[in-house]
């Protein structure tokens, strides 16, 4: 017995592909003073790595953010900038 189910049945988990934040070469940074809580960054994030709080303020989950930069590109008030990822 190998202890596996009869066929490959996977169960849901955050980070199923690991800490995908490690893929990042550029990092989005939110300037909260400019944020208007429009939630577009949260809406458009393909990864679901923009955390939306109860009050609709947002935060980047750097554990999983892959740094695609869509959030910065779509932000209507340019509250998100993309900076080079350091070591």
């Amino acid at each position: 017995m190998s202890g596996l189910p009869v066929t490959a049945i996977a169960t849901p988990r955050r980070g199923a592909a690991g800490r995908t934040g490690l893929w990042r070469v550029e990092r989005p940074v939110i300037d909260h003073s400019r944020c208007i809580k429009c939630l577009l960054c949260w809406l458009y994030c393909p990864e679901g790595a923009v955390v939306r709080h109860e009050d609709n303020s947002v935060e980047i989950d750097y554990d999983y953010c892959k740094g695609c930069g869509i959030c910065a590109n779509e932000c209507p008030v340019r509250a998100i900038t993309v900076v080079a990822e350091r070591e």
Partner: peptide, 20 residues
């Protein structure tokens, strides 16, 4: 019950599924 059926199995488990 959320689960994904017949997903990819990497070389570390594929053989075991075939053995089953």
């Amino acid at each position: 019950k959320p689960a994904a059926y017949c997903t990819i199995a990497a070389p570390d488990t594929y053989m075991e599924f075939r053995y089953e």
